[in-house]
Simulated assay, not measured.
Amino acid sequence: MKHSLVACAIAAALSATFAGAVSAQSNVTMYGTVDAGFVRESGGVAGTVNKIGSGIGSVSRLGFRGSEDLGAGLSANFVLELGAKIDTGEIDTAGSIFNRQALVGLKSTTLGALTLGRQYTPYYTTLSTVADPFGTAYAGNIKNLFPTAGNNTRTSNMVLYTSPSVQGWSGELAYTMGEQAGSNTAGRQLGAAIAYSAGALNARLGYNNRNNDISAAAGAGMTPPVAASSRDIGTNTVLAANYNLGVVKSYAAYGRDKGPNSAPLPNSANPYGGVRPTASTDSSDCLLGLTAPVASGTVIASYIGKDDKSAFNQDARQWGLAYSHPLSKRTNLYGAYAKIRNKNGAGYTVGNNGEAGSGDQAINLGMRHTF
């Protein structure tokens, strides 16, 4: 009996030591966002729409991220993140679990990081982290007019290299496999960004290049079947900067979109009726915005313009205003309003972070909690 007690004590001590060693080398964190609120949309063929929306400020999500210290400044890292609808409790993309991010890779303190999987494009990271004072949140965000639909936001099968920061400079290079049978180039996507951050200034240039070719095998699998085709390249380029003036933080961005699928419409369901709007294949986008502390919260405002240079000349202008009031470091209340003016049959709608919207104006009132 005494020997059994001693053996158990030794086993317990060894287990505790081993567990401590593992926890010292690796770390796994569960995180998430829970966001929901009241949305009122109007101006579209659907009339006035009142609803409870999910992901107005940030798409509601549950994620797991982890790292393991491999020594010599090298670590292994992963992220698995799914999106959820708080208003219904559903996964926000049917047939998918970790639809937001799913990646694994290595990171070196001196050489940078290399990750594989479903990830954000360098172009979208430029819009969300540098260009938009709304941070792609609420009515009035940059996604309503700057092209982020489809593969402009994130892609599967991506290889992404992120450089370390050197005297304020950093960069990203991305390659997304098209993975169409019979072709190594059809559907592939390239991305790049270069950034500079020093003191009050943040600046970033983002680029996206998509091969729109369809291989014979991929076309046969579509509904209805599509013949193999060679199509023009679609490109997106955006230069963005923000500068903290002390009381006010100013934002500016200029984008250029060229080629098929370079500017897909956020709402492609003909939201205003009549002749269906046409997605531009040649356009430019501009943004001016600011954030400023007011009372205990933050006022956010921006103006965004889209200049459609195609023969359709379907331009649009958007004005957005929001206020975010923190209840704690992890919880805030918000209100937002935005209005779009479409020209020549353009079909742009006022959406929010999680939805494309149904009309040319919208009001949001909601709450966001992170953990």
Score class of each variant (00 low, 15 high):
3 H>E: 14
5 L>R: 11
6 V>Q: 05
13 A>Y: 03
14 L>H: 10
19 A>S: 12
22 V>C: 02
23 S>F: 00
28 V>W: 00
30 M>R: 00
34 V>R: 06
35 D>G: 12
46 A>S: 12
47 G>D: 01
49 V>M: 05
55 G>M: 03
60 S>L: 07
65 R>N: 11
73 G>C: 03
78 F>V: 01
89 G>V: 08
90 E>N: 15
95 G>A: 13
99 N>D: 11
102 A>C: 09
104 V>I: 14
104 V>N: 09
110 T>M: 07
111 L>A: 15
113 A>F: 02
115 T>S: 09
117 G>D: 13
123 Y>D: 06
129 T>L: 12
131 A>D: 08
132 D>V: 10
139 A>H: 02
146 F>W: 04
147 P>S: 06
152 N>A: 12
154 R>T: 15
157 N>F: 02
158 M>C: 04
159 V>A: 03
163 S>H: 05
167 Q>D: 08
175 Y>D: 05
182 G>T: 06
182 G>L: 04
183 S>K: 09
189 Q>C: 06
193 A>N: 15
195 A>L: 11
203 A>K: 07
207 Y>D: 03
209 N>M: 06
219 G>Q: 05
220 A>K: 11
221 G>A: 15
225 P>K: 05
228 A>E: 11
229 S>V: 01
230 S>K: 14
230 S>N: 15
242 N>K: 10
249 K>I: 04
254 Y>R: 00
254 Y>P: 01
256 R>M: 09
260 P>S: 01
262 S>C: 07
264 P>M: 02
266 P>I: 12
267 N>I: 04
268 S>D: 14
273 G>T: 00
285 D>T: 10
293 P>K: 07
294 V>M: 09
299 V>S: 02
300 I>Y: 01
308 D>H: 14
313 N>Y: 06
317 R>A: 13
324 S>V: 14
324 S>I: 10
325 H>K: 04
328 S>Y: 06
329 K>R: 02
338 A>K: 01
339 K>D: 04
340 I>A: 05
340 I>Q: 01
348 Y>W: 11
354 G>R: 01
354 G>E: 09
358 S>W: 13
361 Q>G: 13
363 I>W: 14
363 I>M: 11
364 N>C: 14
365 L>Y: 06
368 R>P: 03
369 H>A: 09
